[in-house]
């Protein structure tokens, strides 16, 4: 019996990681092309509100997800236009957009606050759901969670195993070389920033139509998710599989926090709620430690054997961003 409860909890972890996977893989695609879309945190709020409003108006969850993707794509298009065409700071525009989208979601969402609305339904896959352990984990989910599984594989295959994926990486690593080989650097950056934004835009409706159904304004509990997704993109080294692992780890720790909260009543709930954020800092510290000068100096003083082992460990954890990330491309 307790095994069933554990499986149910873990299935919930897989589902609740879904939106973070959409957001972080969308961001990874955008950053692979060289564009940081820092608007993620506010954009998820706006797409959650907009997706819920669209689903409420039409009665269709599909319309809700379409609205979420459209909002994500539109916000990303502003980032793309200002950074690619107008050569403005990506961080500045992204940060303004994250605050603007948040306030827009609170303002526009005011009339539909707290209203009951449609929800996405569970879609167990016949036959497969009967498999012991794997069935309840992977095949008794809703359609969007299945889509999140597909996205991990599809994004990985696209980036590492197809020719357009190779060009995408080239545009973010060595835009000049990609341009010399005939790639339309500006156009491709537009394409992948908007595509990445649209994928990330699905994260909002996944909350408002499923995981945290409805729109509750400032107490929706979604503020912060976008920043976590941005950090997971770095933690995952811009690779879809590692990014997904980061998202699952995050969701697992959140679930563990909930379980611990009932087991340890002495620990204030506020402490466990923000636990992901110090963890975010720590993971970023680990993946960046190998780049620090004092670390390599300290390593050099160690004897041969531990030095090699430590260096290998640091290199394995090290995350290296696309070389041209955040820099505009000049043709001449």
């Amino acid at each position: 019996m307790s095994v069933d409860i554990l499986l149910l909890g873990l299935a919930g972890v897989l589902a609740s990681a879904g939106p973070v996977i959409f957001a972080a893989i969308g961001e990874a695609i955008s950053e692979r092309a060289g564009v940081i879309n820092l608007s993620m945190n506010g954009m998820i709020l706006l797409s959650a509100m907009g997706g819920f409003a669209a689903a409420l108006a039409t009665g269709s969850v599909v319309a809700g997800f379409a609205a979420g993707a459209a909002i994500g794509g539109a916000v990303a298009a502003v980032v793309a236009f200002s950074s690619i065409t107008l050569k403005q700071s990506q961080v500045a525009v992204g940060f303004v957009l994250t605050l603007l989208c948040r306030d827009l979601s609170y303002f526009l969402g005011n009339p539909i606050m707290g209203q009951p609305g449609p929800r996405i339904s569970m879609a167990p896959i016949p036959l497969l759901e009967g498999i012991p352990v794997l069935g309840p984990l992977f095949f008794r989910q809703d359609a969007m969670t299945y889509l999140s599984f597909v996205l991990i594989a599809a994004a990985w295959l696209f980036i590492y195993r197809t020719r357009p994926g190779l060009v995408l990486r080239g545009v973010g690593e060595k835009p000049a070389a990609a341009y010399a080989r005939g790639a339309n650097v500006g156009g491709l950056r537009y394409l992948y920033t908007i595509l990445g934004g649209a994928i990330a835009g699905l994260a909002g409706p996944m909350y408002s139509l499923s995981i945290k159904a409805g729109w509750k304004g400032t107490i929706s509990g979604l503020d912060g998710i976008g920043w976590i997704a941005l950090a997971i993109t770095i933690f995952g080294g811009w690779s879809p599989i590692k990014v997904a692992l980061g998202a699952y780890l995050f969701a697992f720790l959140q679930w563990l926090g909930l379980v611990l909260q009932s087991a340890l009543p002495g620990v204030p709930s506020q402490v466990l709620q923000v636990a992901p954020f110090p963890l975010m800092i720590l993971t970023l510290l680990f993946v960046n430690l190998g780049n620090a000068e004092w670390v390599s100096n300290a390593l050099a003083r160690l004897p041969e054997k531990p030095r090699r082992a430590l260096a290998r460990l640091l290199r394995a954890m090290n995350a290296k961003p696309p070389a041209a990330l955040g820099t505009p491309f000049e043709k001449d």
Partner: peptide
């Protein structure tokens, strides 16, 4: 000393400060 971008370091510490305040 840790190579953590100030945007993420700062944001994380914002949430920690809020939690400490509430606690």
């Amino acid at each position: 000393f840790g190579g953590v971008n100030e945007i993420f370091g700062g944001l994380g510490l914002n949430y920690v400060a809020t939690a400490l305040n509430l606690w």
